[in-house]
Design a protein around this nucleic acid. Structure first.
Length: 118
DNA sequence: CATCTGACCTAAT
DNA sequence: GATTAGGCCAGAT
């Protein structure tokens, strides 16, 4: 895997976007998990930045903090929206948190291979 | 060039 | 659980 410092910013963004797009419906992932899968260990912050800036349509609502908390301020407009989108696909949100043990995405070998290509 | 900011994370307390 | 400290680093100031 070609990772981190061998990648240009553009490549990093592409890896992150590709990874996020691969999160299945009804599952969630943390910023750090996405960074790891994208070959960018320790770059959780970059995932947030890309998500915030990109125009690409992505399942942004499936990204949570490592604690399972929604990524936005409690009861903010965005948090409410995220909660609604998650519940619509079967993810249980207690107040402002999801039980990762129940809904975190566990990438299959096929997922890993797909993410490694390109 | 220096500092600050931030859809974050882990480890330690 | 909560808090603190340190890590991360591109882009804005």
């Amino acid at each position: 895997m070609e990772l981190d410092y061998y990648k240009s910013m553009k490549q990093k963004h592409e890896s992150i976007i590709k990874t996020i797009a691969h999160i299945p419906e009804g599952k969630v992932a943390s910023y750090g998990q996405i960074a790891d899968l994208a070959g960018l260990p320790g770059r959780a912050r970059l995932v947030g930045k890309v998500l915030k800036e990109t125009d690409v349509v992505l399942p942004w609502h499936r990204i949570l903090r490592s604690s399972g908390e929604l990524a936005f301020p409690r009861y903010s407009e965005m948090a409410t929206k995220q909660k609604r989108l998650l519940e619509k696909e079967g993810v249980v949100v207690n107040k402002t948190r999801v039980r990762l043990a129940d809904f975190q995405w566990q990438p299959s070998m096929a997922d890993m291979i797909f993410l490694l290509e390109g």
